[in-house]
Computed example of a mutant assay.
Amino acid sequence: MTEDSWLADTRTSYDTVAVAYADYVRDSLAGEPYLRAALGLFADRVRAAGGGPVADVGCGPGLVTAHLNGLGVDAFGIDLSPAMVELARREHPGLRFEVGSMTELDLPDASVAGVLAWWSLIHVPDDVVPAVLARFRRVLRPGGPLQVGFHVGDVSRLKTEGYGGHPMKVHVHRRRPATMAAWLREAGFTVEAEILLDPDREVPQAILVARHDA
């Protein structure tokens, strides 16, 4: 599987399910106190680092981007799917959303005060993740926080049907926190915290908080 093919498959898949996905997640944060707390922690870390613009990479329909803005963070969204970005702009007209890929991340060096990548690295192949994390570090200001959310496990599966029963073609990669932490350290981050969510479920979730040290 080439980089171009998995990126194209991911883009097409999320263009296809965009409306159904937006409906599915619309009220999802309301019932997730730990996720809201993690976003509050991220907002605090951004302020502690001096504040400034924050990139929500893989923002989808903009739910989390909007939540961060509600917490007083100057967050903007980037997503691979043009349909997702169109939805985000329509549902959150006062906020900034751009079409873009985390494999390129067309932002100037040291231009953002924080990077959020919530469950957006799950479709990125293992051999590409370190380069993506290096790009996150490049665009972050020294001292700025990075928060990454992902599925915990050791397997990858091909997802062929998605939200609303629409066809998809994306690989979903589950990873161990120790693996993600090692990649972060190799990319030049200091790992500040590892948060394990729903440890008794079949597929737990994890959030890692890291810092760009100069």
Score class of each variant (00 low, 15 high):
F76Q: 09
I78F: 05
D79R: 05
L80N: 11
L80I: 13
S81G: 08
S81R: 04
A83T: 05
V85Q: 04
V85C: 04
L87D: 03
L87P: 01
A88V: 03
R89D: 00
R90A: 15
R90Y: 01
P93E: 02
R96F: 03
F97N: 03
V99G: 06
G100Y: 04
S101Q: 05
S101M: 01
S101H: 01
S101K: 03
M102E: 07
T103R: 08
L105C: 10
L105S: 08
D106H: 09
D106Q: 12
L107V: 10
L107N: 03
L107M: 06
P108V: 02
D109P: 01
S111E: 09
V112I: 12
V112W: 06
V112T: 10
G114F: 12
G114K: 04
L116N: 01
L116K: 03
A117I: 01
W119F: 15
W119K: 04
L121A: 06
I122A: 12
I122G: 02
I122S: 02
V124Q: 08
P125D: 03
P125S: 02
P125W: 01
D126L: 13
D127V: 06
V128E: 15
V129K: 06
P130T: 04
P130H: 11
L133C: 09
A134D: 06
R135Y: 05
R138T: 11
R138P: 02
V139F: 08
V139C: 12
L140A: 10
P142S: 13
P145A: 11
P145Q: 12
P145I: 11
P145M: 11
V148S: 09
G149D: 11
V152F: 03
G153Y: 01
G153E: 08
D154P: 00
V155K: 14
V155M: 07
V155H: 14
R157H: 13
L158G: 04
L158I: 11
T160M: 12
E161R: 15
G165E: 07
G165T: 07
H166S: 07
H166E: 14
M168N: 00
M168T: 15
M168E: 14
K169G: 00
K169L: 10
K169E: 13
K169S: 14
K169D: 11
H171S: 10
H173L: 07
H173N: 14
H173K: 08
R174L: 14
R175W: 02
R175H: 11
R175N: 11
R176G: 01
R176F: 08
A178I: 03
T179P: 00
A181I: 02
A181D: 04
R185A: 12
E186K: 06
E186W: 00
E186G: 08
G188F: 05
G188I: 02
G188S: 04
F189V: 05
F189M: 09
F189G: 09
V191S: 12
A193N: 11
I195W: 15
L196P: 10
P199D: 03
D200H: 14
R201C: 00
A206H: 07
A206M: 10
A206Y: 02
I207E: 08
L208Q: 10
L208E: 09
L208A: 12
V209E: 10
A210Y: 00
A210I: 09
A210R: 05
